[in-house]
Each structure stands twice: as C-alpha cells, then as structure tokens.
C-alpha cells in the first residue's frame, strides 16, 4: 500500500500532509500520536470513507479492506452471526471466525445481549472476515479491561500470522504498539506529518519486561512526548 498525501484540510485549516506512507505486504504497523492530530482521518482516507483530500493512493489490484472502528458499530437488529454474514456470505467462515474470537456460543445473540467486550470481539471478527489484504484499526481495544484487551490482541496476532494481512493499527498506548507491531509511526504537528518511524525488532511472542523492550518503550514514549509539546 502506497499513499502520497499532499493535503487534507478540515474547515479550511490544513490537518494532514504532505507526507508519504508505504506499508509492505504483511506488515503490522502501529500509528500513534497525540489525540486530535488526524490519525482517524488518515485511516478514513485509506478506507475511502474520506474523499476530500489531494494526493494519490495505490492499494494494489483488488483492494480488500477491513476496518475496525473505535466503536463496535454492529447492526443492533442482527444477531452476532448475522452481523458477520452481512459482510461475508460464507456462513461456515463466519461461524469459524466467531469461534476464533471465543464467541461460538453467542452466535444467535443480539448486540444488546452482549457485553461491551463481546461486542468488540464481534466487530473484530467482522473486520478480519473475508481475509482483507489491508486491515485498518482505530484504537480497537481501548476502553476494554486489561484481560479482555490482551485476549483480543492475541486473537488479532493469530489471525495476522495466519493470513499475512497488512495491518495499520492506531493506538495511543505505546506498550500496545510495542507488543504488536513491526514498526511504530508517530504522527504529529500542525499540519501533521509522520515525524518518527521506529522498527521494532523483537522476536515474538514478546515479553515486555526484557531490557531491549523497555529501552524501545522509553524511546517511543519520549519521542511522542517531545512532539506533543
């Protein structure tokens, strides 16, 4: 995926660009930066939800994009399984995906019968269904309790390793970025540009209490702190 963003303005005020962003196939990239900087807008541009910008984008032949929004955004009138079947006709694949996210028993429940964490997992399943080539995720596990979030991250990693999806993952949690991604980008400034690009070369599964992990973490935290002033 190659994006060359010239300019994205919001109400006449430049918000993003100019910068280039390239994601290699199968790469897991974390995107961080202060809130309000335009991370969500960048995802929406990539997903084609925001058309009001200048520049060019190359998604490759037959782009198949998955998007996980900040909110679950499930159709309340459809059961968990029906919500998946809405985006993918293959019922077996949908069922398997529900089992993968640990919701095999909740297939016939409506969203309002599910807890917040369960709704997130249905949304996670929906975004991964149909094996998207590019998966865009907007703080998908924020506001989940620690253990549920950890569980969701593991599910995501499994899916990523199985299908070699390219993932762009917005988060404000540096530890999460460090735990998941191959590369961490920091988006900052007015208008915002990609100000830092750090490779995370730690073998998976990753333990956060090792020396190199802690060093990288403090570097990332420091780097985003510098830019937000």
């Amino acid at each position: 995926m190659k994006l060359s963003l010239q300019r994205k303005a919001f109400a006449g005020k430049p918000l993003l660009g100019p910068f280039d962003l390239t994601l290699r196939a199968g790469e897991f990239v974390a995107l961080t930066g202060p809130s309000g900087v335009g991370k969500t807008t960048l995802l929406r541009i990539l997903a084609g939800l925001d058309q009001d910008w200048t520049g060019s984008i190359d998604l490759g032949p037959d782009p198949n994009i998955g998007f996980m929004f900040q909110e679950p955004r499930l159709m309340p009138w459809l059961t968990a399984l029906e919500n998946l079947r809405l985006v993918c006709e293959d019922t077996d694949a949908a069922r398997h995906m529900l089992v993968d996210v640990g919701l095999g028993d909740a297939a016939n429940k409506y969203p309002n019968q599910l807890s917040g964490g369960m709704q997130r997992r249905v949304a996670l399943a929906r975004s991964m269904l149909g094996q998207p080539k590019l998966l865009l995720m907007d703080e998908p596990f924020a506001s989940l309790d620690r253990s549920t979030a950890q569980q969701c991250r593991q599910i995501l990693l499994n899916c990523w390793q199985q299908h070699k999806t390219t993932i762009l993952f917005v988060t404000h949690d540096m530890e999460e970025a460090l735990q998941l991604a191959d590369r961490a980008l920091v988006l900052t400034g007015e208008p915002a540009k990609i100000a830092d690009d750090t490779a995370i070369d730690i073998d998976r599964p990753r333990a956060m209490d090792t020396e190199p992990a802690q060093q990288l973490l403090s570097r990332l935290v420091q780097c985003s702190a510098n830019f937000s002033h």
Binding site: G48, L49, I65, F69, R73, M75, L86, V87
Partner: peptide, 16 residues
C-alpha cells in the same frame, strides 16, 4: 451514519 460507513467499507451492494 456510522452504520452506513460499515456498509461502505465492506462494499455492500446498494440493495443490501
């Protein structure tokens, strides 16, 4: 509109 965006991202047919 958020739900409609879900439909857009997943490229549902206009009928669906």
């Amino acid at each position: 509109k958020g739900l409609l965006e879900v439909a857009t991202v997943h490229r549902l047919s206009p009928w669906r």
